[in-house]
């Protein structure tokens, strides 16, 4: 399957790109995608993620054509 992964704000700098495509034959979750893109780095606890613009958690399954987005936590004011 083919999916789109997006990184916003400071995560874009962290990963070094804002968007990439992943091709996979395995069943994938948000956490697995993060690990694959970030060279097995553990998913930080406060990172927000969304599948097709709906709030998701690390165990959310992704499907063909889905868009997965990662957002950094923000608390500044």
């Amino acid at each position: 399957m083919s999916i789109i992964v997006k990184f916003f704000a400071s995560l874009r700098e962290h990963v070094g790109k804002s968007e990439l495509h992943i091709e996979s034959t395995d069943a994938l979750t948000c956490a697995k995608i993060w690990a694959q893109v970030c060279h097995e780095e553990p998913l930080p606890s406060h990172v927000l993620m969304a599948v097709n613009q709906e709030y998701a958690d690390p165990n959310t399954r992704v499907h063909e054509g889905d868009e997965i987005a990662f957002f950094p936590p923000v608390t500044g004011g």
């Binding site: 916003f8 704000a9 874009r12 804002s18 927000l48 969304a50 613009q53 709906e54 709030y55 987005a69 957002f71």
Partner: peptide, 18 residues
């Protein structure tokens, strides 16, 4: 909903929360 804004790429997003 959570409205997010990334000025660097001029991206607005509205995420549906649960």
């Amino acid at each position: 909903k959570l409205l997010t804004f990334d000025a660097y790429t001029d991206t607005w997003r509205t995420l549906k929360l649960h």
